[in-house]
Structures are given as C-alpha cells and as structure tokens.
C-alpha cells in the first residue's frame, strides 16, 4: 500500500538534504540526479503495485 500520510521523521531536515544534494549543479545535472534518485528509491520500494500507485499520485 502506498502511504500518502506523513511518514518522514524530521521533514524539514529531509527537505534540506534534498536541496543540498542539488547544490552547485546546473539544471541538466539536477535533472540527472533526480532521475537517478527516482531509480534508487523505486528499487528500494520494489513492489510494482506501490510503484504504480506512486506514479499515479505524482501524475495527478
């Protein structure tokens, strides 16, 4: 089951990490990082039903 309720401890800290990961990158490099990140996280989830639900939620 895809959770769309809050699930990240210290949300501000995570958000900060996310932006920091992009520091110093140009737009193309940032896009590439995002793509790699999506793949890494998708692999962590693994479950095709959850991934499908996540794609649908993001697409809304």
């Amino acid at each position: 089951m895809l959770t769309l309720d809050p699930n990240i401890p210290d949300p501000d800290g995570f958000y900060d990490d996310l932006l920091k990961a992009h520091e110093g990158l140009n737009e193309a490099e940032s896009m590439a990082l995002n793509a790699r990140l999506i793949l890494v996280l998708a692999n962590q989830i693994g479950d095709r039903d959850i991934l499908r639900a996540a794609l649908a939620a993001a697409r809304q």
Partner: peptide, 20 residues
C-alpha cells in the same frame, strides 16, 4: 534519454540498475 542515462550511470556501481 534522461532515465536511460540515469540507468547507465547507476549500473556501473550498483547491480540493482543492471536488469534495467
């Protein structure tokens, strides 16, 4: 192309990306 290159970029280091 972005995702294709991301897969190739990860595949060298991480086995998870190789089946993609």
């Amino acid at each position: 192309r972005l995702f294709r290159d991301a897969v190739l970029g990860l595949a060298k280091q991480h086995s998870f990306a190789r089946p993609l």
